[in-house]
Amino acid sequence: MEFKDKILEKLNSNFPSLHVETTDFRGDFCIKFSADKVVEVCNLLKHDSELQFVLCEDITAIDWATSKNRFTMVYHLFSLENKFRLRLKVDIDESISAVDTVSSVWRTANWQEREVYDMYGITFNNHPDLRRMYMPEEFEYHPLRKEFPVMGIPGSLPLPKK
């Protein structure tokens, strides 16, 4: 059995009601499912003795600038044991703009989620320390949102006095 099928089979047997979409483009295997199950699925992927996705390489988001399902959260996982890279995607509506934190699963997710919060304004439920990562704390905007102008908003970032 291929490893991809094993992942899907594990997901199916543990979460029978979970609707999973997969894409497999040039060796990038990707799983898409609903946002409310993200912590359970991540826990399974990490702690299952055969899967062992112990490395959370990156967490980022996409702003589609659409009215429905505006944001997509993207998680890049790697299994050192199986040398397999997996991508998870969950859609989030703009009216919610929040998703459960996976920092309880991988501790690295703490900072990666802070980065997503900083850049997209997506909040993470139960996050232990949701502060901005790059921008100054008093900054009011989220620069990677599509409505944010590339050159920024004049006066939003103060310069020192001359």
Binding site: V150, M151, G152, I153, L157, L159, P160, K161
Partner: peptide, 11 residues
């Protein structure tokens, strides 16, 4: 871009 000072002669 929004994050880079466009010339340090501003300060």
């Amino acid at each position: 871009s929004y994050s880079v000072v466009q010339g340090i002669d501003q300060f």
